[in-house]
Write a protein that binds this DNA or RNA. Sequence first.
DNA 1: TCATAATTATTTGTATACAATTAATGATAT
DNA 2: ATATCATTAATTGTATACAAATAATTATGA
Lengths: 145, 145
Amino acid sequence: MNEIKTNSSRPSKYVCYKLSRVMRKVHRYYESSFSQYGITPAQFYVLSAVWENDGVKFKDLAKSLEMDGSTLTSILDRLERQDLLERRDDPEDRRSLLVFLTKKAKQSIVEITCLAEKLNQEIKERFSEEEYATFERVLEKLSQE
Amino acid sequence: MNEIKTNSSRPSKYVCYKLSRVMRKVHRYYESSFSQYGITPAQFYVLSAVWENDGVKFKDLAKSLEMDGSTLTSILDRLERQDLLERRDDPEDRRSLLVFLTKKAKQSIVEITCLAEKLNQEIKERFSEEEYATFERVLEKLSQE
DNA sequence: TCATAATTATTTGTATACAATTAATGATAT
DNA sequence: ATATCATTAATTGTATACAAATAATTATGA
């Protein structure tokens, strides 16, 4: 009695469900490693993108991360509170603002990036090159329209 | 000037970022279709799992959906408010509770499920069988430990 | 020029997600 | 029998995510 039909549970049939389950799993994996630096995966993506293009416009940052502006505003708030980045006025457009890494962020970003690459490598290594390439190709196609 | 290095933006190198981007995209796709029924994808997963096992225990439901208990509590609150499901006391254990679909939910769940399968099929059709099978295999492996 | 439209970032409200804590209840060991 | 431990669901607090509304600024057209 009280049998639990774990495997036939319907939601697991849908890509959307599968993706969200896997995403959360991988997210937690990254999260637990990043926590030693006091940041979350999403915060790392932002730091990483700003590092690549210091002084980037808010708007371009949101676009490059494919992130909603209001989400980015929240993340910038937290990173600014941690003294990891800084908003400055855009001298060319008073509506716009520019985002810079702080000295503190520049001191740890290389190390954090190494960690991120290590985590990534660990995941990659669990699959054959061909398998993983196909996986990434499907993801890429799904992220387009 | 002000070139935007969209493609070299670092975060896009990481599986975690890619997964979250694709997940959000697919999620929005499901979401826009489900909205006609006034439910979200996550709410659909719950309804779907309860439909498969009406009267399931809260604990087993959370486990089968691999969902944190506190997240499930919130979703049940909203579904109950919409009169789509019902919590009842478990006669065998006063700590536990059982979850049931309402008449209202039973009237629309088949139709919503058809929609979900259609959306799923549309995504599947964009790839070759072999490609998609590999994709699902990688997802499956990633969702395990 | 000046009213209107468009753009930019923020704010607000809702919905997951999850860790940590709590309250109620059940199980166990002595 | 009872003190202790374990389990269950809810609550609280934080962090994405995103739509809709807002305020400030810039662009446009008559």
